[in-house]
Write a protein that binds this DNA or RNA. Sequence first.
DNA 1: ACGCGTAATAC
DNA 2: GTATTACG
Length: 841
Amino acid sequence: MLYLFSVRYSGSDGRAVLYFYDDEEHKIVKIPDYSGHKPYLLTDLTPDEIIEKFPEVIKHPGFNKLDIVEKYDALNDRWIRMTKVEANDPLSIGGSGKSIRELLKDHSWEAKIKYHHCYIYDRQIIPGMPYKYEDGEPKIVETSVPEGIRKLVEGLVEDKIQAAEMIEWAKLLSAPIPKIKRVAIDIEVESEALRVPSPKLAEDKVIAVSYYSSDGRKGVYLLEREEKHGNTQISLGDARITFFKDEKELLLATFKLIEEYPLLVTFNGDSFDLPYLYNRALKLGFKKEEIPISWKERDEYPELRNSIHIDLYKFFTNKSMRVYAFGNKYREGNTLDEIASALLGKGKVRHEELISEMTYQRLAEYSFRDAELTYELTAFNDDLVIKLIILMMRISKLPMEDLTRHNISAWIRNMFYYEHRQRGWLIPNPEDIKRIKGDTSTRAIIKGKKYLGAIVIDPLPGMYFNVLVVDFASLYPSVIKTGNLSYETVRCPHEECKRNIVPGTPHWVCTRRRGMMASIIGILRDLRVYVYKKAAKEVKSEDEKQHYDVIQSALKVFLNASYGVFGSEAFPLYCPPVAESTTALGRYAILKTMRKAVDLGIPVLYGDTDSLFLWNPSRDKLEKLLQSVLDDLKIDLSVDKEYKWVVFSERKKNYLGALKDGKIDVKGLVGKKRNTPEFIKKLFTDVVTTLSKADTITSFEEAIEQVKDDIRESIMRLKNNQISLDQLAFNVVLTKDLQEYVETTPQHKKAAQQLLREYKKLYGSTPVNIMKGSVVSYVKTRDREGVKHVQLARIDEIDTEKYLDIMKTTLEQVLDALGISFDELLGIQSIDDFLQIKSKK
DNA sequence: ACGCGTAATAC
DNA sequence: GTATTACG
């Protein structure tokens, strides 16, 4: 079968080239001149008006023809007649000097989007789906939905139309996913110390190209250089080592290799490897046709002429991928080393020497590992990442190259646009949504925010046994669905709907029509919660289970961002009343549930956004609560966690508990935060672990003794300067470039500046790793600045008192809650006395 | 180019 | 009180 991977446009004539993956031959099949893609522009002028008022349109070199079409204008709830101006490219500038859209500026719809996939098509095609080619047309291969999945869907909704829509989505998700033949490559170039090689200039020799493929070809192409790099008789496991005397030959071999694979995977290939290879090849005298890469400086990214390229750097730095698919395992880390270490448990080869100084053996090892890791990132867990990409292509309708390079808002945008075209709806202009639907009405608590968000219920401080946490399964998608929220249904034009108010807002919701966003988000949510999650639990075979898990996590990525985008001005369907109504319904749901719990006599200890902590509820009362929420709010509430005990302080988002399975849950406490010095984090964890082991009063007393010992020991080590600078360092991320900190000078900025100054003095250059996004490590010192970069500080400069203070406040978050005083625990009157005594000495 | 709420610390 | 960071 052929799987649609990519859609590209040949110049400005509007015809598309489709790139399919043939899963039998394992190669890319190109279909040029795809006629189904005729971009056009819609206008509210009649054909006669166009001919009369804008004769240039008809004379435009790209102009094709005029047609009349019926379109649904959802904002005003009416079908209207529009004129379709068919042109090779209505956005591009033709011989007349102006694009057709430019000419019809005030009367044009739907072509305001620069992005090339946002034209409207006569026949829509779905990236990632299986096709066969018949009579010059790609036809989607109808695949059946597994019986188990179909049963789950049909058992879910009575409405036949809704069930049919859900089955359509289930078809997308259930269609087979091909095994993809692919190769990962990584290049190394010979550059001088501290100079970052420029892919634009490509001045340095390409000295190594490593490759690692799905069909077992792996190796390193090396360039023979001076003798100091060692003997060429080197070996590297089962990797094949090939030496080239001539750099041109090396590039030729590399290009041949790339051409043999339908999919190329790199890490940062968009900004480095591919443009570098391209420009270097030109420099060495290759003709453009001899290079499989096409690259122009103003291109968004380099393209492979006959195959597909994915840059994993772009894909793995995508926020939604990090947070939702991988549980935020690798946080701010952007490097191959960090990502691979987190996901594969294996990092890059460490090296002290410069790449250009390495021996052949070292260079091969270093470079090969990069290619290996890059490949492994697509292959671990049975090709999990490839499967996710294909599924998300189907949900978003974005081609592989675009999906992996754009953020979630583009995915969701494209998904909704597709749906508009499918239904014959006009895609509204952002200004029109804003003008008709208006702004937010609630006031945000945080300065600078646009509207009111979630609520956090004040915790009841103390220690509680048998605590049960209930939560709403994807609360925001649920209320979008049950509240029928969508840009066209919120503040709809109908008089009778104005009584259907969203609690806590002046907004109302349509009672006549089902909202598009509500419908789609609702379907995705139900498929995830009731169908694929359930199926994953029920099926016997490990393979099937894993497959359903991939599907449900792909859905999760979309669901988690489905509310946020409506509150983002950058999103073209931005609709403040929708975003505001979503959080309002969320607040309504949690507060109503809390009241119900209290009415049933269940004490509510705490709650945040979509969860409630219930104190020792009886089975009976719990059942009643869950049922009444389902009946009244039509949202599922279910048991999320069970704690043996939980400790709350007076602070919100701060608690500590022991789960029934013995696992310890620490939330929000400073001792857990990434920026906290290792030494304090370690002490904190030790204290928590010790205390958590106790479940009776006597063992608790023993635990406290142990804690005392631990803390005293730490204080002694601190005072005796026995703790290394590394252990004492705060690690804080620079979220801006240094020059951008204008309001204040935070400590991490100070430390970064110190280091830069020092480097300038010593080497005349500055380290490359101090910029936006890098982590600055500093310790607190007794000097005037109070802070020193960890690389510049000496152990005897440490401000011991400051650290004792930090130790105290950190541990107090736990000890306070347990009714233990830090100072009493240590048998001193107070920490302040202690500090005073010390400073007098 | 997804959202808001809370805590802690430095300035 | 504001800025900054981290996290829920």
